[in-house]
Amino acid sequence: MSLPDTQTRWRCRRGMLENDLLLRAFLEYGYDELDQEGRDAFDRLLGYPDNLLLDLVLGRQQTVDAGIARLVPLIRAAAAARTWE
């Protein structure tokens, strides 16, 4: 299993703590399992502004991007599963 490439990892540094934690959890629990299509969708998600990204992941907004929509439950599951410091 390869580690996520470092550029993607750095793009998970966000302006809001909530997004930092959600995305960091997903890097640890889930990202490695993604196929190329899933990784491309994750890259598109990282291009979203922080507020929209959080709204999508928390289910306050929906997206027509089916690839990103598939990621949302995976990111939520990763955040709930993460062992925190």
């Binding site: 750095w10 793009r11 540094r13 966000r14 302006g15 809001m16 703590l17 502004p49 922080d50 507020n51």
Partner: peptide, 12 residues
């Protein structure tokens, strides 16, 4: 900026 500008903490 170490992160892309619109990912600065002001956004929060």
């Amino acid at each position: 900026s170490k992160v892309f500008p619109t990912r600065s903490h002001t956004v929060a």
